[in-house]
Amino acid sequence: MNPSLSYSLLFVAAALFSIGLAVVITKRHAVVVLMGIELMLNAVNLNLVAFSQYDPSRLQGQVFSLFVMIVAAAEAAVALALIIQVYRHVKTVVLDELTDLKQ
């Protein structure tokens, strides 16, 4: 296995993770924040698959990335339901405008 290939994959994964992090921190629209979170999770998947080529039993990292995908799908379903529920009340999903809980 070519180690330089794996290094470049790690850089891509780190970049993806950072972009996701930046999106979560800077964007105020709930759906966009959700997209940022998905980006972070996919960066993890890339990392897991990249590292699994050094694993003697090979499959562990790839199996883990399957778990991550399944859980991310379940999370997205719950998140969209919550976003719709909030939208019904206040007709907005911009997080800065949701200030009902602040005292």
């Binding site: 993770f17 996701g20 992090l21 979560v24 709930a30 924040v33 959700l34 979170i37 972070m40 999770l41 993890v44 999370e75 719950v78 998140a79 919550l82 976003i83 529920q85 909030v86 009340h89 997080l95 949701l98 009902d100 809980l101």
Partner: peptide, 18 residues
């Protein structure tokens, strides 16, 4: 308030999971 709490909890929780 309950819905808002759930949405905030989700966004923070999913971020932490990442």
């Amino acid at each position: 308030r309950s819905n808002e709490a759930a949405l905030k909890y989700f966004l923070m929780g999913a971020f932490a999971t990442g």
